[in-house]
């Protein structure tokens, strides 16, 4: 996976090196932030799962008590009231309201139960007999439903958190195992390319310098040769001159008197 080929398609320039370095830094910051977020969510998640476990067990007990009180009602009323109740249900007295809670950027909804005042669909239930039992049963069931609503909000939070944690963990892993190595590879690639260019440049400069040196040396040699030639020529001339002079000199020296008189 983290082979040399796994890098981004960029030109190896100093500018893209700067961009890649900024990107790596950003990825590392993001990684640590996301990791912390994931940890906070997981902590919350574990708490919720534990509470769900408890609440589910509690629900079992509460529902048992509620069923018992319903059995009492059936016994007291002396017949099945189910049909009557199903027919007389019109408007919900027991309702729920959703509110939100913010856990590190994740909105968790929580249900809250409330009872609306003043509508009673079952005013006539148990009017003949068993009214007290009916009343008690209603209270028991209301408590049971409250427990159920609490459990339901825990469960909703559980489902949402589960999803969010998965997403966050996926991101954390993607940054850790894909983006960061790839960016590092790219930086390495750019660096090696730049080094290569540097070496090439250095070699080229050396070549140029060598060539220049050679050229100057050649020029120097030429110049020197020319100078020498000139010098030699001059010397030659001088020699010739001096040679001719040498022929003259003794004569000159000796035959000085023999010179013709200079006539002004």
């Amino acid at each position: 996976m983290s082979g040399a080929a796994d890098r981004e398609a960029v030109f190896p320039t100093r500018q893209s090196l700067g961009i890649m370095k900024a990107k790596l830094k950003g990825a590392e910051t993001g990684h640590s932030l996301l990791k912390r977020k994931s940890e906070a969510l997981t902590k919350r998640f574990r708490e919720i799962t534990r509470r769900i476990d408890e609440a589910k067990r509690k629900m079992g007990r509460v529902m048992q008590i509620a069923s018992l009180s319903l059995a009492e009602v059936t016994y007291a009323v002396g017949g099945n009231i189910g049909y009557q109740i199903q027919e007389s249900a019109k408007s919900a007295r027991f309702r729920i309201r959703a509110k939100q809670e913010n856990v590190s950027g994740v909105l968790l909804p929580a249900f809250e139960s409330y009872q609306t005042e003043g509508n009673n669909d079952f005013a006539m239930t148990g009017l003949g007999k068993g009214g007290q039992q009916v009343q008690r049963c209603r209270e028991t069931y209301a408590r049971a439903v409250e427990a159920l609503v609490e459990l339901a909000s825990l469960q909703t939070a559980f489902v949402i958190l589960d999803e969010v944690i998965k997403v966050v963990n996926r991101r954390v892993n993607a940054i850790e195992h894909v983006i960061i190595p790839r960016t590092e590879n790219t930086i390495k690639y750019i660096n090696s390319e730049l080094d290569e260019l540097d070496r090439e440049e250095f070699y080229r400069l050396k070549k140029v310098a060598g060539k220049k040196q050679r050229d100057t040396a050649e020029q120097d040699a030429e110049m020197k040769a020319r100078k020498e030639a000139q010098a030699a020529a001059a010397a030659n001339e001088e020699k010739q001159a001096s040679a001719s002079a040498a022929d003259d000199v003794p004569a000159d020296l000796l035959a000085a008197e023999e010179d013709e008189d200079v006539i002004f």
Partner: peptide, 16 residues
């Protein structure tokens, strides 16, 4: 089942 529904309706969750 009938008993559960009856009980929960008694608590007042029924709505039509």
């Amino acid at each position: 089942d009938e008993d559960s529904v009856t009980g929960l309706l008694l608590a007042g969750i029924g709505h039509v």
